[in-house]
């Protein structure tokens, strides 16, 4: 398997979008949460750290780029849904 024209551009696109996607979660999630700033930041970090590799895998894993982008948005939404209960319950 060599560096084909397919893999490298797709990896570059996925990598370039992954960090901003995490940054978006890290920026906007705290505004949605009514809790002390350190706590809301932590919940945002929990989600954002998952989002970065998940976006790379999603965009790289889908056949078409458009499908990848849509799937990545779904992954981000799902991640936020998973991250929020973590703040609500936590290990007691």
């Amino acid at each position: 398997m060599a560096f084909s024209s397919y893999y490298l551009p797709r990896l570059l696109i996925a990598s370039l979008l992954a960090y901003p996607a995490g940054l978006v979660v890290a920026t906007f999630l705290p505004h949605l949460l009514h809790m002390p700033r350190p706590d809301s930041f932590f919940v945002a970090q929990v989600g954002a750290v998952i989002v970065v590799p998940a976006t790379v895998l999603t965009i790289f894993g889908t056949r078409s780029l458009l499908g990848g982008l849509l799937a990545a948005v779904a992954v981000i939404a799902a991640t936020m849904l998973i991250a929020l209960p973590l703040a609500a319950f936590g290990p007691q």
């Binding site: 932590f42 936590g90 007691q92």
Partner: peptide, 10 residues
Amino acid sequence: NSPAARTSQF
């Protein structure tokens, strides 16, 4: 002791 703080510590 907030849930998020405890998760972070954990």
